[in-house]
């Protein structure tokens, strides 16, 4: 199949960048979207043009590296699919395809379609963990976890941190991403001791990073390749309210000696 691509090209974070039109010819419909870009890149290089930079790694939908907004939809038109698992059979020959990077102030473009998502790491570093030293915790089966809680925690834990929720959100809000972690850890007994501090710290960090606010439009849920439900955002809101009422001012550092 033959396609006309409109791709965002930007030299580096300081460059203004612009859309560029590139023809992609003779693409197999069984190729993945990224394999289509590989083919385009091989041709660009043969013609002495720099290849299109895009993040990718595992190419099986789990590492969360790939981050393409395809025709206005993060990860393209297939529901519950990452760009790397999207196949060209989802498109028609002759189609125009717009390929853009995630757009958010908190995700500055580094080059072409590559963005800096370290803001997500900083949000997790602020509180997305359970404080446990490596050593000899109690036996894994000593605290039974009701299956439905474990399953629900898992539904949230499948987040791959790709940032599609931010890219899709009209306000570039990371609430679905944050809520997945907050929800997972607050549902499990192991995560309960730190639940207040966790949600407060993460919500604070989100603001510092320059993300927008949730307006309950659920674009995130529709774009999420792991089909994470906005129910987790509601749970996080609940957690936040509870924490705002209960938690004293967090002390500097982590607890006393």
């Amino acid at each position: 199949m033959d396609l006309t691509l409109h791709v965002w090209r930007q030299k580096n974070s300081k460059d203004a960048g612009k859309m560029e039109t590139i023809e992609a010819k003779g693409i197999s419909e069984n190729a993945s979207f990224l394999e289509m870009l590989d083919t385009v890149n091989e041709n660009l290089q043969k013609n002495g043009k720099e290849p299109i930079a895009f993040d990718h790694d595992c190419r099986e939908g789990i590492c969360g590296s790939c981050s393409l907004v395809i025709n206005g939809e993060p990860h393209g038109p297939e529901y519950g699919t990452t760009s790397c698992q999207l196949h060209m059979r989802s498109f028609k020959s002759g189609q125009n395809i717009f390929i853009e990077p995630w757009r958010a102030k908190a995700f500055p473009v580094l080059k072409d379609l590559v963005v800096d998502r370290s803001a997500f790491d900083r949000i997790q570093q602020a509180g997305g963990f359970i404080s446990v030293n490596t050593g000899s915790p109690q036996d894994a089966n000593s605290i039974p976890v009701p299956k439905q809680d474990a399953d629900k925690a898992f539904d949230a834990a499948v987040c791959i941190g790709c940032g599609a929720c931010v890219a899709a959100c009209k306000n570039a809000s990371p609430m679905l991403f944050m809520s997945a972690k907050v929800s997972q850890l607050s549902l499990l007994p192991q995560g309960k001791p730190e639940r207040e501090r966790r949600v407060l710290a993460m919500v604070d960090q989100m603001k510092k990073e320059g993300f927008g606010n949730c307006t309950n439009q659920y674009e995130c849920e529709a774009a999420c390749p792991k089909e994470i439900s906005v129910e987790h955002i509601a749970r996080m809101n609940r957690e936040y309210f509870r924490a705002a009422l209960r938690e004293e001012t967090p002390k500097e550092g982590h607890g006393g000696e």
């Binding site: 409109h6 965002w8 859309m19 907004v69 025709n71 206005g72 939809e73 717009f98 853009e100 757009r103 958010a104 102030k105 908190a106 899709a168 009209k170 306000n171 570039a172 809000s173 320059g210 993300f211 927008g212 606010n213 307006t215 309950n216 439009q217 659920y218 674009e219 849920e221 529709a222 774009a223």
Partner: peptide
Amino acid sequence: ENRSARPVKYAHEATIQASFAS
């Protein structure tokens, strides 16, 4: 805040499920 969170708009905007009202 929401507006400033996305300084560069998409060239090809799309809406997946957000309602008109929202």
